[in-house]
Structure formats: structure tokens, C-alpha cells
Simulated assay, not measured.
Amino acid sequence: MVTSNDIRTILGSNEALAPVAQQIAEDDSLFDRGLDSFGSVQLMLALEERFGIEFPDEFLTRRSFSTIRAIRETVSAVLQSVAA
């Protein structure tokens, strides 16, 4: 199971979000908090490494990485598709 704290820990390793990672609410826009396109690629790679997954193309959207909730739902969906 993917938790919000798992996501916050990974966000803490992102240069732009590290100072505020623990204060970000579930539905706060990460892009409004400083995440840029380079940071979103770093985030994607960190998530793939942490959860042992590879995001299919249909999940590589701005929306998939826009909030903690969206990331949690996206990672959970990918994990479910791998388990099926």
C-alpha cells in the first residue's frame, strides 16, 4: 500500500520541494509549490525506483504527478496492473 508519507519522503529528496515536503496537503498542487518539468522527471524516477515499477505511457501526464493524492493513486494503479 502506498501512503502519503511514502510520497512525502520521496518529495523530501526533490530539491524544490524538500523544504516544504512535510507541510504539503494531499491536494496541494506540487507545481504551485515549485515542482517543474525537470523535477517531475526526477520524481517519476524516484517513484519507479522506490516501488519497483515503470510508469506506462498513459500515466506520464502532468495530472499524475500534480498532487500527493494523484501520485498515490497513480502508483497504486500501476502496482495493481503489475500484480494482475
Rank of each mutant, 00 (worst) to 15 (best):
V75Q: 00
A83K: 09
F59C: 02
P19S: 15
Q42M: 13
I71R: 06
T3E: 05
S13F: 12
S4N: 10
S81C: 08
R62M: 14
R62W: 12
V2L: 05
L45Y: 06
S66W: 14
F55H: 03
N5M: 08
A25G: 11
V41W: 11
L43T: 03
T74F: 07
L43R: 04
V82W: 14
G12W: 11
M44D: 00
L45H: 05
L11E: 00
F38L: 13
T61V: 11
M44G: 03
S64P: 08
A25H: 15
F51G: 01
Q80S: 15
I53Q: 01
L47R: 02
Q80T: 13
Q42S: 13
R33N: 06
A16R: 13
G52Q: 09
A84S: 11
A21D: 11
L43Y: 01
D6A: 10
S76R: 04
D36K: 07
I71C: 06
R63L: 12
Q80G: 13
I24K: 04
S29D: 08
F65M: 08
V41Q: 07
A83Y: 11
G52N: 10
N14P: 04
R33G: 00
L79I: 13
L17F: 05
S4I: 02
A21V: 10
A84G: 10
N14W: 03
P19F: 12
F55A: 00
T3G: 08
L60S: 05
S64H: 02
M44K: 01
V41N: 07
P19Q: 14
S40D: 06
D27Y: 02
F51A: 01
E54D: 14
A25F: 13
D6M: 02
I68N: 00
A70W: 02
I10K: 02
I71H: 01
D28I: 04
S40I: 12
A70K: 00
L47Q: 05
L79R: 06
Q42V: 09
M44T: 00
F55Y: 06
A83V: 11
L30N: 05
D28A: 08
I71M: 07
E49W: 01
L30Q: 01
Q80K: 14
D27M: 02
A70Y: 05
L60H: 07
V20Q: 09
M44L: 09
A18Q: 12
M1F: 12
M44C: 08
A18P: 01
M1G: 14
S4V: 04
A46G: 09
V78D: 00
T74V: 02
F51M: 05
Q23V: 15
M1N: 11
F38G: 07
R50M: 08
